[in-house]
Amino acid sequence: MILEIAERHASRPGPLLPLLHAIQDEMGFIPSRAVPIVAEVLNLSRAEVHGVISFYHLLRETPPGRQILYLCRAEACQAMGARDLERHAKEKLGVDFHETTSDGRYSLEPIYCLGNCACSPAIMIDDFVYGRVTPKRFDMLVKEI
């Protein structure tokens, strides 16, 4: 499958980033075995491919939980209590950033701005953004979803 995705994107100009996104969309992360395959298809070194994967915060090298919970840490959210929300979320889920809950349900990731800054603090669960997230609303969202 990785080979098929790589070959599908190989002829585009500047193919590496869309290609890596496609692998991640399909598999949830970019497994290490993808590196030599992608390098071979694009005629790059493994170091170049690995270098790109490790550079970008939102490309993953490890499998995520069933859902990814992104918590905004940026200033507009800070102004409305994001620091408290961060403490609460870590305590509630029992994980730190870049970790996955023991039941495999959530991976908690920091994010720097979802563009929801007039209704902060914000979190994003998978692809959906939630605004004005108080600790109480956080608990409801985590339970509901």
Binding site: G14, P15, L16, L17, P18, L19, L20, H21, L42, E48, G51, V52, F55, Y56, H57, L58, L59, I111, Y112
Partner: peptide
């Protein structure tokens, strides 16, 4: 549309061009 990947520096124009070319956003 080309999707970025969460690096703030890629809002700097030359980093963005590197990223569009499929490289690290240096």
């Amino acid at each position: 549309v080309r999707e970025a990947a969460g690096a703030y520096i890629c809002g700097e124009e030359t980093s963005m061009l590197e990223s569009l070319e499929g490289k690290r956003g240096v």
